[in-house]
Design a protein around this nucleic acid. Sequence first.
DNA 1: GTTGACTCCGTATCACGGTACGGAAGCTAT
DNA 2: ATAGCTTCCGTACCGTGATACGGAGTCAAC
Lengths: 133, 133
Amino acid sequence: MALTISELARSGGVGVETVRFYQRRGLIDDPRPSRFGGAKGRRHYGDDEVRRLRFVRGAQRAGFTLDEIARLLELDRVNDRPAARTMARERIEALDRKIAVLQAARASLTRLAKACAGGPDGPCPILESFTDS
Amino acid sequence: MALTISELARSGGVGVETVRFYQRRGLIDDPRPSRFGGAKGRRHYGDDEVRRLRFVRGAQRAGFTLDEIARLLELDRVNDRPAARTMARERIEALDRKIAVLQAARASLTRLAKACAGGPDGPCPILESFTDS
DNA sequence: GTTGACTCCGTATCACGGTACGGAAGCTAT
DNA sequence: ATAGCTTCCGTACCGTGATACGGAGTCAAC
């Protein structure tokens, strides 16, 4: 606990500038609390910030945009389960579509790699790839 | 055959501006052939352009960047099979990693959706999602 | 108690893949 | 042969997610 911004960044595998970017986007807490009439000092970060940063990176891997991630954090704050559930389910559906597209593309590439493996003659129809998918 | 640019665009499910963007990137042929000392007229497009446009869209679905797609088209032009094979195989590996990430994310979301389905009490740990993946 | 790293903050810039705008010129249907 | 879509072309702008820069302030170690 009591991490500096660079330690927090390292803990999330991102750069300092990225942490600051997330702060500006409201994904990590207010860097300018300005409560107590000033508090100009250097900020320190704890478990909550580490958890949030991890969550942001994980949610990005799931394909959420930063705007959506901000909404998810707000849903967590107000404990809005139905909305959270809806967002999760919609993302699952999008992921399923995406995974299917990638698997079809993978199959096309496998076919291409196999075709181009033969000698200098024979087919290697790059341009004809992906015609199905 | 002998399509206008808007017909070509429609055939690929993209906008006219996107076709023009691809032309500038060299993905679809030179819009300014300037051969025959001028030829200022309006261009027409045929099967080759339709195939290229389809290929570009398919390769994008496979996760290739436009720069990579330009290289693939060049490899096709010079019939460089080993390089084509290498690009295909590297992309397959990247796709496998990506698909695994998306499947892990999907599993996390499924767990989240299930957890948040209960009544107003009980866990719905949005922020704890993706902790594994 | 000074030096050197780190931090804060605003603002600028980047990469990627488009998307839009505006003027001139070319078709096409009436 | 004129109105009114398209096209052509250069250039500008957009959204997303960062990443960089520069100057002032702060902290920690020697």
